[in-house]
Amino acid sequence: MPHRQNRLGRIALRWGLYILLGLFALYYLMPLFVMVTTSLKSLEEIRTGSLVALPRDVTFEPWRTAWAHACTGIQCEGLRPYFWNSVMLAVPAVAISTLLGAINGYVVAQWRFKGANIIFSLMLFGCFIPFQVVLLPMARVLGMLGLAGSISGLVFVHVIYGIGFTTLFFRNYYVNIPVELVKAAKVDGAGFFRIFWAIFLPLSLPIIVVTVIWQFTQIWNDFLFGVSFSQAGTQPITVALNNIVNSTTGVKEYNVDMAAAIIAALPTLLVYVVAGKYFIRGLTAGSVKG
């Protein structure tokens, strides 16, 4: 009975696919699993037990240490102050770069002017400049502005670097909105900013979410700008994490390192979980005409 064979073959194929996908999932989850379990073990247990074993006695001491007592060089305040540095850096930087990107995209897509394409191309070009290239000139500019070593300086750097991407996102989103909408609003008497606030911004939730996720991930995870343009007291969490892991005296506290790494990664994870479904929707929104 060929029909039956065909059916069995399909089921086998389906199961084979699921098993393969399951293996891949396990493979990718392995590091996270090791990180979480290790962070919950005592140093004693790490030394004696297996890397992949579940913790015998669950302890939250490494997390407490990583948060409040771990040493970065000579200071032993944990990640806490640097976590707040990163929050104070990421929140304004994300907000400002997203807003500027929205306005830029709105102008480039809907208020065509002579040279609009050239300006947009130049902004796109900005997305492809490697971080390392701008380090020295940026340090000079920050110095001249009196922002060297401050969190405001880092916000400034990330806003500048983010505008290219945020403009690209918003421009591609707004370019699909019919130009007649702006025309209708102009006839209705609305001006440049009124049209932006009352008509375009309320339409933009999906692309705002995409931009916020993108920018937040970039800025929160950035290490190079953080390490280059900060000083003691203004370092972001990535730099502090590096310092904790690399400045061990005596025994290497793997459990504290793991807990610290998870703490540093949690905010971006959280943003994905909360806004993830909008992310996919927003990324594809540009390609399908609403």
């Binding site: 019919p178 007649e180 909408l181 025309k183 209708a184 609003a185 102009k186 006839v187 209705d188 008497g189 609305a190 009352a198 008509i199």
Partner: peptide, 15 residues
Amino acid sequence: KDRNIAMVFQSYALY
């Protein structure tokens, strides 16, 4: 806006 006109568009252009 100051021309004292109103306009209806092909795509309607509703907000």
